[in-house]
Design a protein around this nucleic acid. Structure first.
Length: 930
RNA sequence: GCAGGGAUGGCAGAGUCUGGUCAAAUGCGCAGGGCUUAGGACCCUGUGACUUUAGUGUCUGCGCAGGUUCAAAUCCUGCUCCCUGCACCA
């Protein structure tokens, strides 16, 4: 089987036949989509998981008779593509290498990708081609890019609606900032792709009479009571600054960084030597504090001035000890800490034998104490004595701030972070930043109402949605640069990437028409009519688009990987709830886990990314489809590796070979067999129809893993057994059902099989398996008794195998006798099942008239039954049924063991066998081997 | 720190809601055998330990420590460890 050839054949036929183009009609519809990709790289097999899951579902629903719309577009909004084009233009070696080694893009090609649009075009074509090769049943006519003029108009309309609703606000906001580029920085703007993390710290003011205040940044304002001195770095430069009419002393570096956050003015330098002579005043205890020098103080971190709490901060204690001041300064205890005495910092430093402040163990000790004190520390002094460390911290910070003795400031927690331009990043307080007010209570309520009407898969993620809805606050919705849509209310701004992709699904409903209209025509009235049905249709186009939207909306199912739960998917709820009327709110969200490569996360730095098109080339699309969805439950991550893909491949191939054989056989002998089903046929088709019957519920609940297991492995195993068991296997019917059932998973191969089978079984004139109806199970063929009998036959076979091995008589037995337990033993079994107790069971049996004749024997039977009393719940076959099962399977057993098989009832045993026959139990035959 | 998820055999991964049929599905790996010129293809068997030449039995076992129960991977309590997310970034 040449998978690639089959893929190509059917991809072309589908395209030519316009099989997946969906138009509004009278039929019941289903509108679903998966998050549209950001084209700044080729896609890898991880992306394939979400799209494959979506496509399986789409194909399943199509086969259930729905008019299914599965569209796709490209999200190009934001800065990474801009940044990437710029870097390629600069011949950035890091990028060129990634392109070459991981994406397989030559340097010549890279040289042509220095414009954002060229990059978008290149990767979106690459991605689209991959999706086509994977056989995704997408209506490509509706494709658009988020920078298309018609889409811009749509987003601007959306933002006008949000503004009308009062959800767009302005205010100040801290962002990671490059002072040299004069722009906000994200992970893709920094050296080594470090994600800059903003953290809030408290800066406490320690007054120096006549000079202003020393500003000390700290994570632990509750320890101000214990401050014994102030640290400054002897080799740093300190300056006086003016801020809100007050004077402060901080390092020069800090002044530069903080000027981005506050309107501060540097008044002049102050020499370290001069500072060291001064005294500062503790704002809480009013103690006079000396100022000392310490090397551990980083002038670039925080304010460059550090308050010293030697009782609780190991670094402070170490610095004192290094300067031989530990004898002179009196430590002040602030907290009582579990497992420590008066001065925890001193204790831990001594216990861990930290040599000095610059040793790496100093940091370890700090972390340890910080954690311990935050957990178990109780305030010993001050206004909040008796309270826990964490609550006291907040209260003290607030109290100091109220008196103007503390200020909130922002720092980069993972500092230093460098911009790719080389400058050190800091935090800037952006003024007049535009926000979407997701903190609005009423809006939150609406979003929750929307959520409550939806089906969320996997169900356990509902908690995440609720949590995120509650937690969301004002969120910046514009940026100074980027591709996408201009922000109408402030033309210096572009709408930010996560804000223009919240209701874009609605645009798919009309995108294939919108493209043909001049952008000017898409004004307020136009969209009000199309999406909200307000007013009269401004023109024919609007009317047509309104009808289309009315047909396809509400949006039935949104698919993505699980990382979008905390942002995009929640915004999706908020925005739908705001813009559209309730009956147009979305119905379902499905999220899935990631794909690992040989057990490890795929990443550029590890170089273990497998591009999806390379994977298709190697294994075939359908094998990849199975590989990314069959391995794990929807919610958990799945592993892709060679052996999984090869295993799937070989199963599919052997199915193909069998299909060929079946067809050849039928052609020779004629497909019709008039003979009735025998036991083996009944068993096999009972299993098949049971699976067919259960399948729809499994598709609906996204038990994709279980379904693939059934289709690929369990059905396959059944067939293996059936082939051995059946006198004349009839596989045609099986293949007709199996092909349809597996078509959503392996569409190309299913089409190929379908064609070979003559393809008209389930729906008249279905040219494609993709359009055939999912077969309904023939429930008459589900035969539980037959399945049990076969099960019994198989376990009997197992017993014989075990016994032969035990006797070392494999292949040497002359005759094998099988004895079925008498009916009265079943009575005993059910008594034991009921009583669940040896004594009670005996009494019950004695009282049972039916068991009277067997009084001498039943005690032993009860004993045997009691061994696994829990197993007795399931019902067993009657003696006659067991007998039938074995007689029907006698041929099979004979061929398995190559010897004569004699089946009898226990009571019919004669001579030497009589004793053995007594071992027979319900559901377990007695075996006698000659 | 907060929130969510998790810990099962050589590996991956079911089983947990609804306790007993669980030495634990399925797949991979490994070992032995068969088929074959050969095999990475296919088939059979085995794969916690010990014991057993008539079909066993005993012990150990599902992160750790307890508890409930005739019975616990499954229920309860406490603990340890791991993963993911925490905002202006797609």
């Amino acid at each position: 089987m040449d998978f690639n050839a089959i893929d190509t054949k059917w991809n072309n036929l589908w395209q030519q036949g316009k099989v997946f183009e969906a138009n509004h009609s009278k039929e019941k519809k289903f509108f679903l989509s998966a998050a549209f990709p950001y084209p700044n790289s080729p896609q890898h097999i991880g992306h394939g998981r979400t799209y494959t899951t979506t496509d399986i579902y789409a194909r399943y629903l199509r086969m259930q008779g729905y008019n299914v719309l599965f569209p796709m577009g490209f999200h190009v909004t934001g800065t990474p593509i801009l940044a990437m084009a710029k870097r390629l233009g600069q011949k950035d070696e890091e990028y060129l290498r990634i392109f070459e080694e991981i994406y397989g893009i030559s340097r010549e090609t890279s040289a042509t990708l220095t414009e954002p649009k060229a990059l978008v075009t290149y990767f979106s074509h690459e991605i689209e081609q991959g999706m086509r090769e994977m056989g995704y049943s997408i209506d490509w006519r509706r494709k658009f890019y988020s920078y298309d003029a018609c889409f811009n108009k749509f987003i601007q309309w959306q933002f006008r609606k949000l503004k009308e609703a009062g959800y767009i606000k302005q205010g100040s906001h801290p962002v990671p900032w490059c002072p040299s580029d004069n722009n906000a920085v994200g992970a893709h703007d920094t050296r080594g792709d470090v994600d800059p993390q903003i953290e809030e710290v408290t800066a406490v003011a320690f007054e120096i009479k006549g000079e202003g205040s020393l500003l000390c940044s700290t994570y632990r304002p509750e320890t101000v009571y214990g401050v014994t001195n102030i640290w400054i770095n002897p080799s740093a430069k300190y300056v006086k600054v003016e801020m809100n009419g007050k004077k402060f002393i901080i390092s020069q570096d800090a002044a530069n960084a903080l000027s981005q956050q506050f309107g501060l003015k540097i008044i002049g330098e102050i020499k370290v030597a001069e500072l060291l002579k001064k005294e500062a005043i503790n704002p809480l205890s009013n103690a006079k504090l000396p100022i000392f020098e310490a090397k551990f103080v980083e002038p670039k971190t925080g304010t460059g001035v550090v308050m010293s709490v030697p009782a609780h901060a190991p670094l402070d204690y170490l610095a004192l000890r290094d300067a031989k001041l530990d004898g002179k300064v009196k430590l002040v205890q602030v907290l009582t800490v579990e497992g420590f005495g008066e001065f925890p910092a001193k204790e831990i430093v001594e216990r861990m034998k930290v040599p000095n402040q610059l040793d790496s163990k100093a940091e370890e000790a700090t972390k340890e104490i910080y954690k311990k004190e935050a957990h178990t520390g109780i305030m010993k002094v001050g206004e909040f004595a008796g309270e826990g460390c964490a609550t006291a911290r907040e209260k003290i910070a607030a109290a100091l701030a109220k008196k103007g003795q503390a200020h909130k400031l922002y720092v980069l927690a993972n500092s230093p972070v460098f911009c790719r331009c080389g400058a050190l990043c800091s935090v800037k307080m952006v003024q007049n930043q535009w926000f979407l007010d997701y903190g609005d209570k009423k809006w939150k309520e609406k979003a929750k109402e929307c959520l409550s009407g939806m089906k969320i898969m996997p169900q356990q993620t509902i908690a995440d949605y609720l949590y995120t809805i509650d937690w969301l606050n004002e969120r910046a919705c514009t940026r100074a640069a980027g591709l996408g849509t201009q922000f109408e209310f402030d033309k210096t701004q572009m709408i930010e990437a996560l804000s223009d992709s919240t209701i874009y699904m609605a645009f798919y409903a009309i995108s294939h028409y919108a493209k043909d209209l001049p952008a000017d025509a898409l004004d307020e009235k136009f969209f009000d009519y199309v999406f909200l049905g307000k007013g009269k249709a401004p023109n024919e186009a609007a009317k047509k688009m309104h009808e289309e939207f009315e047909y396809w909306y509400p949006f039935d199912s949104s698919h993505s990987a699980k990382d979008l739960v905390h942002n995009h998917l929640v915004f999706f709820l908020f925005n739908h709830a705001c813009i559209f009327e309730k009956k147009k709110w979305p119905k379902q969200i499905v999220t899935n886990g990631f794909v690992l490569m040989d057990g490890k996360k795929m990443s550029k730095s590890m170089g273990n990314i497998m591009p999806i098109r390379a994977a298709i080339k190697r294994y075939g699309a359908d094998v990849i489809r199975f590989s990314v969805v069959a391995g794990a439950d929807l919610s958990s991550d799945t592993d892709f590796n060679k052996s999984v893909a090869e295993g799937i491949s070989s199963r599919i191939k052997s199915m193909g070979e069998l299909l060929e054989k079946t067809i050849a056989h039928d052609a020779q002998k004629g497909a019709k067999t008039s003979a009735k089903y025998d036991a083996a046929d009944k068993w096999f088709y009972s299993r098949l129809h049971r699976r067919v019957k259960n399948a729809p519920a499994m598709f609906e609940s996204f038990q994709i893993r279980e379904l693939s297991q059934e289709i690929l492995f369990e059905t396959f195993n059944d067939m293996q057994h059936y082939l051995k068991r059946a006198k004349e296997p009839r596989l045609r019917e099986f293949f007709e059902y199996w092909t349809a059932l597996s078509a959503p998973f392996m569409p190309h191969i299913a089409e190929e099989f379908w064609e070979k089978l003559g393809k008209k079984k389930f729906v008249k004139d279905a040219k494609f398996a993709s359009l055939a109806h999912m077969p309904a199970a023939d429930e008459k063929k589900i035969d539980e008794e037959m399945e049990k009998q076969e099960q019994f036959l198989l376990s009997t076979r197992e017993d014989v195998v075990t016994l032969l091995r035990l006797l070392k008589k494999e292949g040497q037995a002359k005759k094998i006798h099988l004895f079925v337990a008498d009916e009265w033993k079943r009575e005993v079994r059910s008594v034991v099942a009921r009583e669940k107790d040896f004594g009670k069971a005996i009494k019950a049996c004695l009282a049972n008239a039916k068991l009277k004749p067997h009084a001498a024997e039943f005690k032993k039977v009860i004993e045997t039954c009691m061994k696994d009393v829990g197993a007795l719940k399931s019902e067993v076959l009657s003696s006659q049924q067991e007998l039938d099962a074995l007689q029907n399977g006698a041929e099979f057993l004979k061929s398995e063991f190559g010897t004569e098989i004699l089946v009898k009832k226990e009571s019919e045993a004669e001579g030497a066998q009589a004793q053995r026959a007594k071992n027979a139990m319900p559901n377990r035959v007695a075996v006698a081997i000659e």
